[in-house]
């Protein structure tokens, strides 16, 4: 590991538990690099996760770290941020953790526009429990609980976040890593609720079940189906089918929750 990054890791815990080629490691590295590029104060960062392979990430990171219950990372994070708005709060979550069991907390954290950066390690499967379909598993894909092909339609997390009220929304992939790091930097600098949908790979379960081949083949697949939002504008609906749109979808400056609450405190004390 590069020397200047070592302080961000609990290096004695490495190598991590993730499978060979699992992109959770790439994403965790991207988060650390974004933090380092911005030179954020390490002693002011709190990283919260739920349950899943992805949610193991904070255990390797040398910050205030909290590994909560399945789906509830944003609920805990909301308490932390409101209690201590000086902390930069980052939620690392899986697609199942965030969009299935945690879906309610996700839309409400977005609605409040509370200053939390949420990065979804979106491998379109439940990795930790060995390959059941998630709300991000594409229709038609296979999973251990979809042996005949998945009939559920999947979410578009970015659209979901935006319509729920998130004020920074972007998608990147583990293949397009320099861009993804830039996106995470923007999300971390944004005041308000920011979402990064980080498209990633689970070679062990999604990959095998869908006969996608090696981690390399899965990365190639992501590379080949991704298109920047700008180029997508010129394409027809048919041409866009099965494609992953990447880039920044939405950015807005809007009142942030903990700042609004500070005003509540002021108001309540008026005339005292």
């Amino acid at each position: 590991m590069r020397k200047e990054l070592e302080k961000y890791f609990r290096t004695e815990k490495l190598p991590h538990i993730w499978c060979p080629g699992c992109s959770h490691g790439i994403l965790t590295g991207a988060v650390v690099r974004a933090i380092d590029n911005l030179k954020l104060d390490q002693k002011k960062i709190c990283i919260v996760s739920g349950i899943g392979c992805s949610s193991r990430a904070p255990g390797y990171l040398n910050f205030y770290t909290l590994h909560t219950t399945h789906g509830r990372a944003l609920a805990f994070a909301t308490g932390i941020k409101l209690a201590n708005p000086d902390l930069k709060v980052i939620v690392l979550t899986g697609d199942g953790d965030c969009a299935a069991i945690g879906g309610n907390h996700f839309i409400h954290a977005a609605r409040r526009n509370i200053d939390i950066t949420t990065i979804v390690f979106n491998n379109s499967i439940y990795g930790m429990t060995s390959g059941q379909y998630s709300p991000m598993t594409p229709k038609g894909s296979y999973a251990t609980t979809a042996p005949y092909g998945n009939i559920d339609r999947n979410f578009d997390l970015c659209k979901l976040a935006q319509s729920a009220g998130a004020t920074y929304v972007a998608r990147g992939t583990v293949y397009h890593i320099p861009q993804l790091i830039k996106i995470i930097e923007k999300a971390l600098q944004h005041k308000g609720f920011s979402l990064v949908d980080a498209v990633s790979i689970c070679p062990t379960y999604f990959g095998r079940k869908n006969k996608m081949g090696s981690p390399v083949k899965m990365m190639e697949f992501i590379r080949d189906v991704s298109i920047p939002i700008k180029s997508a504008e010129k394409l027809s609906k048919e041409e866009l089918a099965g494609k992953i749109l990447i880039g920044e979808f939405y950015e807005e400056q809007a009142p942030e929750y903990t700042e609004e609450y500070a005003k509540v405190i002021e108001k309540s004390q008026e005339g005292d």
């Binding site: 909290l66 909301t78 308490g79």
Partner: peptide, 17 residues
Amino acid sequence: MEDEIASMGAVIGASLT
């Protein structure tokens, strides 16, 4: 909060600070 599960989570988060 949006429900009691979230409330309990937020309380624990706040207490940790």
